[in-house]
Each structure stands twice: as C-alpha cells, then as structure tokens.
Design a protein around this nucleic acid. Structure first.
Length: 813
DNA sequence: CGTACTAGTCTTTTT
DNA sequence: GACTAGTACG
C-alpha cells in the first residue's frame, strides 16, 4: 500500500499533476496541507525532481516549519534541501545576496511599523506639512497599498499631477523612500517590491533563480497581493510549474493588499492551468459545517463550492448570551474548566477566538481567576517593548552604520547628556553634507560643537566603534552582553516600580536566550542574520499544539489552525462585523463574513458562540445588537437559539429590552442619543458585581499574557506569572545560564522611593485577604525578607500563590 | 537638558 | 481606559 492511497480522488489528482500550472481550490479542512506535502514527496520520489529545485512559499514561519517536517516524514532524505519559506524571508534571502544591484548594501536594516512611523514623521516635518492634517499612519497605509500594487513614487507622482492632496502624498512617498534608502533600510513592503525590481532590472539574476526553482508552490494563495503575484510569476519563468493552493472564501487580508483577483484570474494568466477543487471536509462535524456554509452563502462574490463531510452530525452549535463581557468571559473560562475536569478535552484543545486583540483582557482575567492555563498570541509584540527596541537599536547601529534612526534612538540611552538641540544640529549638518547622522556625529566641528558637547559625542562614537570591532569576531550574544555591561543598561532604566523592572529584565533575558538559540541553530550566525530573524517572526510562529494551554488569538491569527473546541466570543454587530465594515459597505461586510467563516471552520467538534449585551469599548459602555452572522445560522443548528430579530427593528432600550434590538446604522456616530453610546458608567458594572476595575488604578497593567495552572510557579517574584513572550515556552533558559544578571547589583539600584517597601498592613497566617485578580483567599504563611514579605495565599478559586505583599496589594477582609 | 504633566489617539485585522 | 507624543517649566 502506498502513502497516496489514503488520499481521495481529487487529492490524488492534485498530487499526481506535477507539470504545468495548477490551481487547487481547497475548502476549509479539506486536507490541503496533506496534498501539498504529498505532492512534494511525489515530486521527489516519483518524478525524480531534485529537492533543491523545489520552492514552497507559506504564510508563516510556523507553516513553513511544519511543511518541512511533514515532508521529511514522507520522503527518506533530502527534505532539508527544499526551499520552504515565507514571502518575506525568501525576499530577504535574495536581497541580501544582490543588494548592491539596487543601491543597498547587504546588511540593510528591516524597518518595522514603529520605525516607519518615525521616518514618516520626519518626512512630514521636513516637508513643512501641517501635522494636524497629515497623519503618518494614514500616509503610510496609503503608501503601503501603493507598494502592494507595485506603484513606484515616480508613477504615483505622474498620476497625482492634477490633484493637490495626491501630490502631497506623492512627495511624502518619494521623500520617505529616499530617507529609507539613505539609511540603507527597507520596510516590509519593500522586501517584496525590491525583489521584483531586482528581477526586472537584472535578468541574469532572475535567471539564476528560475533555473533553481523549477517547481514552485504557494500556500494561502488567496492572501497574496499584486506584488507577491508578480514575484511568483517572474520566478516561474518558462518552467510554468506553479502550483497555488487557496480558498477565496478564506480571503481575509484585503486590508493588507491581498488581491482576490489573483485567484479568480489565475486561469487567465495561465490558460493551460489545471483547476482542482477539494470539497470534502475532514475536520469538522456536520453541524459546524452546516453553520459555516449557511454563513458564507450570504456572500455574492465567490467561486462556487460545496463543502461536504462524511463525519457525524455532532453537537449542536452552542450559543450563550450575557449581560456584559465579564460574565461572558467567566462562562467561557468555567466551561473550559468543566470540559477538562470531565475529561472531555485537554486545555490545549480549546481556543478562544475574537475579532480584536483588546478582547483578550477580560478573557485573561477570568482564566487567571479560574486557574486555567492559557497563552495569548498577538497583541503587543515582544519586540516593540522599549527595552528590547533599545537593545536592538544598539545592535542595528553596530550592524548598519547608515541606520540613522537607530543611532538617534540610542545616542542618549542611557542618558549621556546629548539632547534634542545637539541631535537637531547634527542632523542638519548630515542633511547639508548629504551624509549619515553617524558620520556627522563623528565630526562635531562640522556642526560647531566643541567642549563638553563634543566630548560626549566622542565618547559615544568610541563606544560604538569598539562594539563594532567586537562584533567582527564575537558572537551576537557576547556583543549584547557587552552592551548591557558597558552601558549599565539595567541599572539605568527608568522604571515605575519593582514589578516593571522585573518585567523588563525578564524581557532582556528572553532576548538573550533568543539570540543564543539563534546562534545554536543558524549555520553561520551573524548579527544581520539575527536581526533579520527577529524582524520576520510572527507571534503565531511560536504556537505549539502539544502544550496543554488554552489558546487565545484573533480569528485572523487562527487561520490555518484547527481546534477541537472553539469559542468565538463577542458576536455582536459593531464588534464583529466591525463598525468600520458596517459603515463602509457590502464588500467590507463580505470580508468580515469570510472571517466569520474562517472562525467557524477552525472547530472540529464543538463550537460555542457568545455575545455580551453590554461591553466596555474605548472607555464607555456600548450596547450592541447580536451579530448578523449569528442570525444567518439556521436556528435548528443551535442548542439554545438566539432570539431572532429583524435588522431594522425598533430602537434599543437597555432597561426594557430583553436581549437587544436593532437600530439602523445611519449616522450613528453623529447622533449622540442614538445607537451605541449609552453611558451608564459604573452603575452597570456595579450592579453585576464586577466593578472592581474602576477602583484599582493599576487595573490589569500588571497582567501576564501567559500563565499556568498548578503550583509549579512558586518561585520568583510574582509567582504564577510569566512575562509576555513571543517564544516557545518549552525552550526555557537552562538554569545554569541564568545568573547573568546577578553580577549587576540586581534590583537594588532600581527600587525607587520608599513606597515600595511599605507594608500592606501586617498579615499573618490565617488572615482572609482579597486580591484584585485572584479574588478572596486565606493566608497560609508569611516570610519576612529584607525589604518585603513573601506571602503564600490559598485562593478560593485561583489556587495557591506566593507573592510579595507590597505588590500584590492584598486587602485584609 | 531633563522632568512632569497634558492632550490626543486608539481598537479591526499583520508579514 | 491606556498608551504615547508633545509641551511647559525647572
């Protein structure tokens, strides 16, 4: 029996079709990954294709790794030779090699969105534009979509000629590009655009890649934009062995430039293309599939498909409605806990999916309270934390001398007495002489700076030069440690309190272990390589399905994943679909609907939809009607059907209406008394017994993004918590490598003011206490330490925790 | 030059 | 409500 026997007819057809263009329309859960990996195996084993000639492009690094692993299991050897990568890392690899052809050096920096903003802000200033009217974010998003469509600054300038606003945008675009180029930097979009540019201007370079990549596969093809398509088209060359896999119903990245035409027009570009539809779903039970089909049916622009399954009917879809988001979260947390306790699932089988990252907060709070282990993906990026950005800016400065942005970021970190005045002078000189900022600071006399100011600059210059020399021979981690040592960074950080300091130190440790991991795994570790890897990771890349923790993420992030139990929370019009899409029109609603379809089809066995009648948004309470998508699901599929209502029902009265009515959206924003903005402040929260948050000013700020159940977390400050991290938690730093920071005075220099050591009242064993996050509990023991007391508390619902009294804000009751 | 306070923006989604 | 950038003042 061969490994291809378990494939169905359509899947086999796709696997065995090796020559010529192939479009696979793969419905959700139709065994798409299996087809891709088997096809690669078939190419290697049966069609005698050299693995070296295969290129597979995926959406995330995680998907790339998985694909390689699965191919590895199918073919005996050679899978490491396959080039599996994301669009962005593929382009970086190519560009590093040929950067000179485009006027960059091969150690170019990659700018993230924060960097982009900084650059654009300077552009706006330089062009003397009104900062009130011209927002860097809006300009950047416009520029980004131009790049997605491969429109150059010059081309856009021509098309903008007659339009004043457009002309302004055009000049910003052009200035922004030259600023990047001067800094030897590329933004995310440039990676693709410049690779295409390279191929168009250097046919011999393109040729070398066409010769190498004789067989190309693109996963999640519905999410490619015009630039990415062009790249693939060029790479395919005359080989024409391009296989793309996608599902137009799962296209959810239009806002990022994804062009649905790429899928709809594939056959126009490749008239000889074979098209195969995979319509049998292997993932979900029939009820879930029926719900998904019922929702997506309401979209008009789609390739016709009919998902079917041989699976059993399964559970009904669960629907629950709550008064507010706290009750919603509490239900989900308890429902998961119950399911695990009854042996129906493992924590890791459960996923909580939401439309916006902000919704993770209330979920997190209740999960902590119920002692449910979880992991949140997305949200604030690990690498955008201040201390991490600082250290990376040092590394980038060392790596790429032309990166003005980074130099300016760290020139006064830690404080060296080099202020805005000096920086402005140096920048002016740099502009005048058309050189880099660093060059300018090496010659203070150019800017008429002497005495103390010049000395300080000289000191900084020497530091960077020394570190740069060190980087020539030493590993990135050694350089990183040297930076921390010489700048005394840890002790110089200005921190809010000890907890903040702990947080940041852990983040820095995390960065070091990430660098160490990179050094161990990379064939040829370099500083540029490390920085590149950091720039291109996604949070989701660290998802490990073998971990026993509830997964929290946006529906966008969940694409491509599957879970036994899925909770889709916040099913409210205004949240999902979002206000923006509702105001914009049908195309946007259809995209939201596809998102809903993606969410539903993540579930294998159990799908639970929840909705809160009242929800805090932007600081005030919103009363949103039930999501229209829930109404699109036939009521017989639910265990408890939602109260149906018509779209333009009478207006909503929170006091009398049982489950929310529906009001038209026309100008809801202008009409203060209208839909959506009933301010009732804390009275509402108070009534439901969840008002605690308004009093504690720290609110959730000390909250972790990762937690684990059980008592294994009983050492270290703020036990029970792990800091936010983008990394695989399985790879803990080995114990013996940890003491790195102990030589630096630890925390002693960090503690600011005396309020930290102030006792929270004398606690002793047996006292009943209340904690802002864990609720009530009993003190087990109190251990006095030099500055503080370590208190062990047995919480009624959140298990046993050890915490420092002064930070825990324990209230005696 | 550095700090502390204020005002504005944000929350739709991300490689 | 939370975070950030910008500004006024010491």
């Amino acid at each position: 029996m061969s490994m291809y026997d378990k494939l169905n007819e359509q899947q086999k057809e796709a696997v065995f079709h090796t020559e010529g263009p192939l479009l696979i329309l793969a419905g959700a859960g139709s065994g798409k990954t299996s087809v891709i990996t088997h096809r690669i195996a078939y190419l290697i084993d049966e069609a005698n294709v050299n693995p070296y000639n295969i290129l597979a492009i995926t959406f995330t690094n995680k998907a790339a790794g998985e694909m390689r692993e699965r191919v590895d299991n199918l073919v005996g050897f050679g899978s490491e030779q396959i080039f599996v990568s994301t669009f962005h890392s593929l382009c970086v690899r190519i560009l590093r090699r040929h950067a000179e052809n485009l006027g960059y050096t091969n150690n170019f920096s990659i700018y993230d969105s924060d960097d982009q903003k900084t650059v654009m802000k300077e552009v706006i200033k330089k062009l003397n534009l009104d900062t009130k009217h011209y927002k860097e974010k809006a300009l950047l998003s416009k520029i980004s979509s131009l790049k997605d469509e491969l429109v150059s600054p010059e081309e856009f300038a021509i098309s903008a000629a007659g339009d004043y606003e457009k002309r302004i945008t055009a000049s910003c675009y052009s200035e922004y590009q030259s600023a990047l180029k001067k800094s030897n930097a590329l933004d995310f979009d440039d990676l693709i655009v410049e690779a295409v540019e390279l191929f168009k201007t250097c046919p011999e370079v393109l040729n070398s890649y066409v010769n190498r990549f004789k067989y190309i596969m693109v996963d999640e093809y519905q999410d490619t934009n015009t630039a990415q398509f062009e790249l693939v088209r060029l790479l395919t060359g005359s080989n024409r062995n391009l296989c793309v896999v996608g599902d137009d119903d799962q296209s959810i990245y239009k806002f990022r430039g994804a062009n649905i035409r790429n899928i709809l027009d594939f056959e126009r570009f490749f008239p000889e293309a074979k098209v195969i539809k995979l319509e049998q779903n292997y993932r979900s039970v029939q009820n879930i599939l029926d719900a998904a089909n019922a929702v997506i049916r309401n979209n008009s622009e789609r390739k016709d498909k009919a998902l079917w399954s041989k699976q059993k009917e399964g559970d009904r879809i669960h629907f629950r409605e709550f008064d507010n988001s706290y009750e919603e979260a509490e239900f989900v947390a308890r429902d998961i806990k119950k399911s695990v306790q009854e042996g129906k699932s493992d924590f890791g089988d459960n996923a909580i999916l939401y439309r916006t990252n902000a919704q993770s907060r209330s979920m997190e709070e209740k999960l902590v309270q119920e002692n449910v282990p979880y992991k949140i993906f997305g949200g604030v990026n690990f690498y955008s934390r201040r201390e991490i950005k600082d250290l990376l800016a040092y590394l980038k400065t060392i790596d790429n001398a032309r990166d003005d942005l980074c130099v300016k970021r760290i020139i006064n970190i830690p404080k060296r007495g080099i202020g805005a005045t000096t920086i402005n002078k140096l920048q002016a000189t740099a502009d005048e002489r058309n050189t880099t900022f660093f060059d300018s600071l090496m010659h203070p006399e150019w800017s008429d700076l002497k005495g103390a100011a010049a000395d300080k600059l000289h000191g900084f210059e020497l530091l960077i030069l020394r570190l740069r020399a060190m980087a020539e021979s030493e590993k990135p981690t050694a350089v990183l440690k040297e930076i921390l040592d010489t700048t005394d960074y840890i002790n110089q950080m200005d921190v809010e309190d000890e907890e903040d300091a702990e947080n940041r130190i852990e983040n820095i440790e995390e960065l070091i272990s990430k660098a160490r991991l990179y050094e161990e795994e990379a064939e040829e570790p370099t500083l540029s390589g490390l920085l590149e890897e950091i720039a291109l990771v996604a949070d989701i890349d660290s998802y490990d399905e073998s971990e026993s923790r509830v997964v929290l993420m946006t529906i966008h992030s969940a694409k491509g994943l599957e879970f036994k139990n899925v909770y889709m929370v916040g099913m409210e019009d205004g949240l999902f679909p979002s206000y923006n899409s509702i105001n914009q029109g049908d195309a946007e609603i259809e995209e939201e609907r596809r998102l809903c379809y993606v969410g539903i089809t993540r579930a294998k066995e159990k799908l639970t939809l929840t909705r809160a009648k009242a929800r805090m948004m932007h600081g005030d309470t919103q009363y949103n009607p039930l999501s229209r998508f829930v109404n699109e699901i036939p009521r017989q599929l639910f265990d408890i059907a939602p109260v149906t209502r018509k779209y333009n029902d009478s207006y909503y009265d929170p006091d009398t209406s049982e489950s929310g009515g529906y009001r038209r959206y026309d100008n809801y924003r202008d009409d203060e008394s209208g839909y959506g903005s009933f301010k009732r402040n804390s009275s509402y929260d108070g009534a439901s017994g969840y008002g605690s948050n308004s009093s504690g000013k720290t609110g959730y700020s000390g909250f972790s993004r990762e937690a684990s159940a059980g008592s294994s977390y009983s050492s270290g400050i703020f036990s029970g918590y792990k800091r936010p991290t983008a990394y695989n938690t399985k790879k803990e730093t080995p114990e013996e490598e940890k003491p790195f920071f102990t030589k630096m005075n630890g925390l002693s220099g960090l503690t600011k003011g005396s309020d930290l050591a102030k006792p929270t009242g004398d606690l002793s064993a047996g006292d009943r206490v209340k904690h802002i996050k864990f609720g009530e509990g009993t003190v087990i023991s109190v251990v006095k330490e030099t500055k503080d007391s370590k208190v062990t508390v047995q919480f009624d619902t959140a298990g046993q925790r050890i915490m420092y009294a002064s930070f825990a804000k324990l209230q005696k009751i």
